[in-house]
Nucleic acid binder design. Sequence first.
RNA 1: GCUCUCGUAGCUCAAAUGGAUAGAGCAACAGACUUCUAAUCUGUAGGUUGUAGGUUCGAGUCCUACCGAGAGCGCCA
Length: 545
Amino acid sequence: MIAGIENIEKEISSVLKKYEILDNIEIRYSNLNNVDLQCNNLVKYSNNINLSSIKTDLISLIKENQLIESIEINEKNFINMNFSNQYFFEYSQSIAERIKHTQNYSIIFDYGGPNIGKDLHVGHIRTLNIGRSLYNIYKLAGNKVVSDIHFGDWGMPVAQIIAYIEHNNLDLEMLDYEDLETIYPKANQLSSENKDFYNTAKSIAMQLNSKNENYTKKWETVYNLAIPNIKTLLDKLRHKFDWYFGESDVVNETDLVVSKAIDEKRVKKDDGALISTQEVDPPILITKSDGSYLYLTTDLGTVLFRENKSSFDKYIYVVDSRQENHFKQLFTTVKHFGLSNSDFFHVGFGTINGSDNKPFKTRDGGVYKLNLLFEDIKEKLKKYNSDDQVLNTLTNTVLTYSDLLPNRNQNYIFDVDKFTDINGKTGIYIQYAQVRARKLLDSSTKPGSYNINYEINSEERNLLLLITKFDYFFNLSLINMEPHHLAEYLFNLSQAFNSFYTNNKIFSDKIPIETQINRIKIVEEFFKTISLVFNCLGIEAAESM
RNA sequence: GCUCUCGUAGCUCAAAUGGAUAGAGCAACAGACUUCUAAUCUGUAGGUUGUAGGUUCGAGUCCUACCGAGAGCGCCA
């Protein structure tokens, strides 16, 4: 989607129609230097007998178009065009307005998914960043969006914690959050080693489901210990959700899903467990042999819970790619059980690795907690600034931008030194460009408006061209649910601005006033655009650096 | 064994869903500060896109086979 070219496509189409060429005409940005747009439709008609008159007709028609400065059809029959200055002045403005009505769906985003007992760690970065970014992008496109954090606050993990506390006669009331963090890994390990302990935990999980008073009370204590802590860290990382529901909120719905499936004979017994009647390999397990619930069961209950709360056109789950099979099973079962008619998407992503290309750990091989990573990055950034607020913003920028830059399908290597450098494709580089523009605008008293007779130079042209390309990259990210297109664009935009900035002075007696006014207007449109991209990616702009 | 993701410059990554001469950033080399902050900018060099076929005007992109890396595969989440 390129802003403002629909009429040019129509014009080309009308010419080709006269010669009985009925192709769907597509104009695209060109990779070539010195060519803005290209149209490839004519290439395959090299043997058409009317070719030379087609060319003549096309050139004479397009030459009339005010948005196009030049058109050329080369020997291979590529149609090459360049934008006029008028195009840049017209389409570098009102970008946010243009994208506002791209879509109109009601969408729920399920991402984050922190678990009780496990502090947020490196593994949570991608779901949080990609989720927040897609939420923002879809919102800006005009959709009605809801985000739900989907806490992992139920089932075996929390039952294991309670079992461990009982097993070791710990006083639940005396525990603090740090204790909880050390308990869960131990409880989890014990559960896999000790059959009796495992059975105890499983029994607690079942009793929680049947609302046993004693365990519900203990669960509440654990919950109230863990959740505020998670929320505090999320706040520090600038993550907000519309809904903070968790697995614990959907217990009734999960019961309903299972009993309804039994009534409707959509499940059958298999070694005591319930499996879906869908003929798939492997079979889809709905409940364990003792009747207790699984990850999938709870997710089915969550769908019913959400259906009861509101109506969504799309469900988007931002969860790592390793769970692809789980989501395939979930989506097919949702349809099989008749729980929802909506479209379901799993947005997967790869793992974050260390420089050894193995999962990212601390130096001594432990789990890299997000809080610690935040502080480690912040420490590296102190060379740029001493203001704590600014440092927090920059730290969050590094955590976000570095993560959104690679294609989400791939694993990537988290290199703290590289990501905190001001040179290169980094969060610090883009913030610096933004701060430079901000300072120019702050010190400007000139009104911002274009003089369309102004002849632009190459740096100004590059910057304006990139600004008008926003729509294209926005749509690429939107349609593919891939924020990296906008992240890459953000770097190129910043780079074009820095080049413009270095080579074009504004506030100087030597610069004509008319040039000053036009340049300030360009800076203004750049600033509006980069702010919009920041918004899309979930990056907060630094006030100063 | 089956399924999924991936393989692009020394390193880290893009590449418009099939378009022209495959682009950036690091690192390397060579330049630019009396400045709206050089925290930047401007150049140079770097490639048989894992291998072999195929499809067509045209393939990093689609198809087939093979090689290599990572991940998942019934009662954890």
